[in-house]
Design a protein around this nucleic acid. Structure first.
Lengths: 157, 157
DNA sequence: ATGGGTGCAAAGGTTTTGCACTCCG
DNA sequence: CGGAGTGCAAAACCTTTGCACCCAT
């Protein structure tokens, strides 16, 4: 009875892969593990993951990282987010679809990303289905602006 | 007394450019004109704009298109949006900051983009300033999912 | 006239792909 | 075993940059 185990284990991965006819490999396991271990350090790019692997003396190639991130996203284990900084980023998708609605404040000056929780949009999804017949799988809300620190440092302008 | 003139004219552009020390050029005028003329066909990429220019036998180079799109965004005339399809897209920023809050429904299957208006988030910006001291300049809301057509065509699955 | 702007081509960065080899099931 | 998965390097993309020339101001 380990339903409230931590985030996402190797067996969850195996099951999800098997479900769709993919194989479990050490590479996929290792890459997912990095996201679980770095669940504090959200939204990592392929390069970020690759660098962590190299630090660990892993032999996993960059192409494999890209392929794994893509696959894990398709399986709904990761979600891709894009902060307009020229590379795709990924973060763990928490299991409960009602929980993963955190959003991002992106500072246009220092590029810092602040997260916040907000479930305000759930009701909106219902309206969107009614009006457009559109079934929302995931949504993404980003606020671009200036963070507290940068606002202070710009006061002189 | 032409305050309610159409979208965005050459003189508005000249003024905005001058204001920041940039020059008015035929290229910049032409590129903006494309957005005004194609205000129905939203969110165009640099390549899209370049192709329209080529159809018109314009000599404007792709690098100039990129530079102009970047500049027009900095001036607040265009806004950059990203649908995760590998290239940056741009659309006209309507003059009134309270009006431009339309958002996007992006179909994961056919890549169609549906727009909808929703000002629900204005109140949220106030809360964000209070809580994080973050000053929002612009926000972006995207719903990823399946459109009506694709849902129908997938019914067999 | 003069400094910003342009066009071209080359370089840059991220992501994808072809192919031989490996290894999971 | 057999086919999916991997690693490497090359290719493919989108975007930026260097440079000589051009043209708004």
């Amino acid at each position: 009875m380990s339903e409230t185990r931590q985030l996402f284990g190797a067996e969850d991965l195996r099951a999800k892969l098997y479900e769709r006819g993919y194989k479990m490999t050490p590479q996929r396991k290792e890459i997912l593990k990095i996201f679980v271990e770095h669940s504090d350090r959200h939204h990592m790019s392929a390069e970020d993951v690759y660098n962590i692997l190299r630090d660990k003396d892993s032999e996993i190639g960059l192409a494999t990282v890209y392929r794994a991130l893509d696959l894990l996203s398709k399986l709904g284990i990761l979600v891709q987010v894009d902060f307009g900084d020229g590379c795709a980023r990924y973060e763990l998708n928490t299991a409960d679809p009602k929980i993963h609605h955190h959003h991002h404040l992106i500072c246009l000056k220092c590029r810092k990303v602040i997260e916040f929780e907000e479930d305000l949009l759930d009701e909106l999804e219902g309206l969107i289905d009614e009006e457009f017949g559109f079934q929302t799988i995931n949504h993404e809300v980003k606020f671009f602006g200036y963070c507290q620190d940068c606002r202070r440092s710009m006061e002189g302008d």
